[in-house]
Deep mutational scan, measured.
Amino acid sequence: NQESVVAAQLIPINTALTLVMMTTRVVSPTGIPAEDIPRLISMQVNQVVPMGTTLMPDMVKGYA
């Protein structure tokens, strides 16, 4: 089963992602794949992401 990127903390809107903000977990439905974490660093979220929420492609500016 593929791991997806999950918020390790509350991420406010327009925050640039850092490694410490993200963790990985096997979730359903699947979100952004864990191997894309290096690509996500410094990208901004376009909404508030509560802790434990799976990051979906449409939540990250410039990802999709």
Rank of each mutant, 00 (worst) to 15 (best):
N1H: 09
Q2H: 06
Q2K: 05
Q2C: 11
S4T: 05
S4A: 03
S4P: 01
V5L: 04
V6T: 10
A7P: 01
A7G: 03
A8H: 11
A8K: 09
Q9A: 06
L10D: 11
L10G: 10
L10S: 11
I11F: 01
I11Q: 00
I11S: 00
P12C: 14
I13D: 12
T15G: 04
T15L: 03
A16W: 07
L17R: 00
L19G: 05
L19F: 13
V20Q: 04
V20R: 13
V20E: 04
V20M: 07
M21T: 04
M21D: 15
M21K: 03
M22H: 00
M22F: 08
M22C: 03
T23Q: 13
R25N: 05
V26F: 12
V26C: 15
V26R: 03
V27E: 04
S28I: 05
S28T: 14
S28V: 10
S28A: 13
P29E: 14
P29F: 11
T30C: 15
G31V: 04
I32R: 01
P33W: 08
A34E: 10
E35I: 10
E35A: 13
D36I: 07
D36E: 07
D36P: 00
I37F: 05
I37S: 05
P38G: 12
P38E: 05
P38F: 13
P38M: 07
R39P: 02
R39I: 08
L40N: 00
I41W: 14
I41S: 04
S42W: 11
S42L: 04
S42Q: 09
S42F: 09
M43K: 09
Q44I: 07
Q44D: 04
V45Q: 00
V45L: 09
N46L: 12
N46C: 11
N46V: 14
V48K: 10
V48Y: 09
V48S: 14
V48R: 10
V49A: 03
V49E: 00
V49T: 04
V49D: 00
P50H: 08
P50C: 12
P50V: 11
T53Y: 14
T54Q: 03
L55D: 00
L55V: 08
L55W: 01
M56V: 14
M56C: 15
P57N: 11
P57T: 09
P57E: 08
P57M: 13
M59Q: 05
V60G: 02
V60H: 01
V60A: 02
V60I: 11
V60M: 05
V60E: 01
K61A: 08
K61Y: 09
G62H: 10
G62E: 07
Y63D: 03
Y63L: 07
A64L: 14
A64W: 03
A64I: 15
